[in-house]
């Protein structure tokens, strides 16, 4: 799917666009700003004050505006690779990064499908949020375990206890019945 970009508006100027007539809708530019802002904040952490920060900022802004899966991939790579290179091992920022990368991925993936202008309902955002939290419920313990392994790599019992706790947590999450079917 390809949508006309901003230039097309000038070319076909003259009509009045259709607008939704209810509350509880968030304009898409807010979602774009959020996606770009999260990517820029994460980039500011990992690029560590380098002048090259301009590059991920530009790419993140482009990915938030243009419907391109390539720019989305580039944005995420420009966060993952500098993290591996610049961030010290065992940094507590890992937890923030795991959530932030996931959020950037989800928001950019949402925007890739959509034209430039529009609205998203709060119910739809809530659904996305619930889906996000379900995955974070597993990803954050994995990140904690990774930090634990990094800190106490030589202590086998600590690692084994951590892995066992993670497995038990995952089994409980998977095994529990969804709220809807419980009702």
């Amino acid at each position: 799917m390809r949508w006309p970009v901003a230039g097309a508006r000038r070319a076909t100027h003259g009509g009045t666009p259709a607008v939704p007539d209810r509350r509880g809708l968030v304009p898409l530019w807010a979602v774009r700003c959020a996606a770009g802002l999260i990517a820029v904040l994460l980039g500011a952490l990992v690029w560590n004050g380098s002048g090259w920060i301009v590059l991920p900022v530009v790419v993140a802004a482009g990915a938030a505006i243009l419907p391109s899966i390539g720019l989305t991939a580039l944005t995420l790579l420009l966060l993952i690779v500098p993290y591996a290179v610049n961030m010290p091992a065992g940094s507590p920022w890992l937890l923030v990064f795991v959530a932030g990368l996931h959020a950037v991925f989800v928001l950019n993936l949402l925007l890739v499908h959509l034209p430039l202008r529009g609205w998203i309902s709060l119910s739809a955002l809530r659904l996305l949020g619930v889906s996000f939290l379900r995955l974070q419920a597993v990803a954050q313990p994995v990140a904690v375990l990774a930090l634990l392994v990094d800190d106490a790599g030589s202590s086998l019992p600590v690692v084994l206890v951590g892995v066992a706790a993670l497995v038990a947590w995952c089994c409980w999450l998977v095994g529990r019945r969804p709220l809807r079917s419980r009702r």
Partner: peptide
């Protein structure tokens, strides 16, 4: 005469336009 706009809703949700 207008460029496209999008309305993202949860399935089953209705919206006046």
């Amino acid at each position: 005469g207008c460029p496209p706009d999008v309305l993202v809703l949860m399935e089953g949700e209705e919206c006046p336009v």
